[in-house]
Amino acid sequence: MFTFILRRLAVVIPTFLGITVLAFALIHLIPGDPVLVMVGERKLDPEFYKAAMTRLGLDQPLYLQYWHYLTGMLHGNLGESIVTHEPVLSEFLKLFPATLELSICAMIFATVFGLAAGVIAATRRGTVLDHGVMGAALTGYSMPIFWWGLILIIVFSVNLGWTPVSGRIDLEFDIAPRTGLMLIDTLLAHDLDAFKSAVMHLILPSIVLGTIPLAVIARMTRSAMLEVLREDYIRTARAKGLSPVRIVLVHALRNALMPVVTVIGLQVGTMLAGAVLTETIFSWPGIGKWLIDSISRRDYPVVQGGILLVATLIILVNLLVDVLYGVINPRIRHAR
């Protein structure tokens, strides 16, 4: 088992190095530079420009810049933002909890409803209910989520007034960030109204972000369930006269869960991509928006560091899924 994990880790390292190169190359290939963006339509003094470029170390040859970046990174230093002068890591850590909270809630939403929809569709296979549920799932899967978000805001926030429009919490509540997760921070602050407000603010973004994973999970659950329901042991269980509910929920679902768990793991990447759009629509102060803003501001250290951190996250989750899979299924462990 241990060597298996080591083997997977050995693969991760070159991938990781590759990502540093990719992130560095991408951002430096983008035309324009941070000083120009800062100056905007104002006067550009050549001396001033030169001084700024020197101060930011942007006048050095690219390979040297990469080298500084890489060595800095190995010392745990991702550099500091050109715009705010704050260390990249500390900016990331301030914003990441917001994305994490949103992603977790969206994933819970997607998993709960996705599993339920999948199980219902599988047990009522071929009925109107099955077609309806699966049709809805496919529609969700086909949804341009930015449009979906806008429509939900208009209907539920503006016209019906059920949910707040944007942000993480009503700003009358001044909650000191302790964990950065608003739900937990409000509870730690013993402020139930604030907690309620935080929950209300999470509803729409979670739905929007969870829609596509929900559809994927529902479809996966349905097909996995159908496969399992055909197995001999289910037939045996039926023959033994166990209640159908028990058969479905205990015997079938448990065995159908494995591929579903994998799919959930794989959705993390999709989720982070979706977060970029969802955060833009709901003014959610997370890392998706942060990265997009930084690309347009040419904030090199933030883009490099941010992409690296996000990629690391995805790699780690994939690794975790891999390892879990290996734990569950020894055949995979010894392959390759």
């Binding site: 503006v158 007034g161 429009v165 944007s166 942000g167 709901f282």
Partner: peptide, 21 residues
Amino acid sequence: LIFAITPDASVRYQKLQKNEC
């Protein structure tokens, strides 16, 4: 005095309508 940072103009308008700002 609180600044609610809301980059999208339609969202700002919706918040204003709801007295969120």
